[in-house]
């Protein structure tokens, strides 16, 4: 059984002191231990930005890709070896700006992977520009008079886009966040966990204090039904997505089980001389 220390590396973090990403990393490690994952059979695919540095701080098989492309890479890894626990991790820019196309198609495809988006409503590593989740009127170096772009609503988009599992956590609320990650990993399909992970340097509006006052925990609301799509969308609309908990889940069968004839074992073990009879049969088609 792996323990928390098995997932730690000796690297010293480059994140700013107080960054929400520390909480995401901690909750992720706890969740991996809880689902009985093993560093050697865990693959974490990270994007570009502050969040993307996570691969330096967690001991597993990590692939740090180009900006916005975590999901197709994670898809390739999962299909190549279904025995792995596969997580894609990125920020709000990676997910909802440059990687938006992949996000929408990952929702449609429902591969059995977990997507953790560390959402801080701002571009941090490039030192403070608007992000696709920045609120209208948010002041940054690229929006000095306030952002005039309607923010992306990732949770509603995900539910509308065909998601089978949608959750939102807050990096300060550790027990709930790690529980949501456990639920996401064990969900048999694509799971989105949008995590509010405040930027202490470039976002002085959406702060820890602000979120603590504003966020409503749906897991504590017995009247909320995460299986009722219409109710889910209405609640997200009303609350402007300022909620945490399991937002939406529906029965799911992962994509990889739907591919005709697809091998369930690791594909690295499938390389070898092709069967002569099969080969002859194929070549006969060219006569």
């Amino acid at each position: 059984m792996a323990t928390l220390s098995d997932f730690k590396t000796a690297e010293k973090s480059w994140w700013c002191p107080g960054c929400g990403d520390f909480g995401v990393l901690a909750a992720l490690e706890k969740a991996l231990v809880q689902v009985n994952a093993n560093p050697a059979t865990t693959a974490i695919i990270a994007g570009i930005g502050c969040s993307g540095k996570i691969g330096n701080y967690i001991n597993s098989y990590n692939l740090h890709v180009t900006h916005g492309r975590t999901l197709p890479a994670a898809m390739g890894i999962k299909l190549a070896n279904r025995t792995l626990t596969v997580l894609a991790v990125g920020g709000d820019g990676d997910a909802y700006a440059i990687g938006m196309g992949h996000f929408m198609h990952a929702l449609r495809r429902n591969i059995n992977i977990t997507y953790l988006v560390m959402d801080n409503h701002v571009y941090g590593l490039t030192k403070g520009q608007t992000s696709p989740t920045s609120d209208m009127g948010f002041h940054t170096k690229t929006s000095p008079d306030g952002s005039i772009d309607e923010p992306v609503h990732p949770l509603m988009l995900a539910v509308a886009g065909g998601a089978t599992f949608v959750a939102q956590g807050f990096s300060s609320w550790q027990p709930q966040l790690s529980r949501l990650i456990v639920q996401g990993i064990t969900h048999p399909g694509f799971s989105l966990i949008n995590v509010i992970s405040p930027c202490v340097t470039y976002n002085r509006v959406n702060t820890y204090e602000w979120y603590k006052k504003t966020l409503v925990n749906l897991d504590e609301d017995p009247s909320y039904k995460s299986s009722q799509r219409a109710q889910v969308l209405a609640r997200l609309e009303e609350s402007d997505e300022l909620v945490t908990g399991l937002i939406f889940q529906k029965p799911s069968r992962p994509y990889e089980e739907l591919i005709t004839g697809f091998s369930s074992g690791p594909l690295s073990e499938q390389v070898g001389p092709i069967n002569q009879d099969l080969w002859d049969h194929i070549l006969d088609q060219f006569e």
């Binding site: 898809m75 190549a80 591919i259 690791p266 499938q270």
Partner: peptide, 23 residues
Amino acid sequence: AVLQMEDELASITCAIGAGFAGA
């Protein structure tokens, strides 16, 4: 498996992911 992706960015990145995992 043949995977029809959303664009060529995804196409090659998926193949790289699969290669990383040994396929």
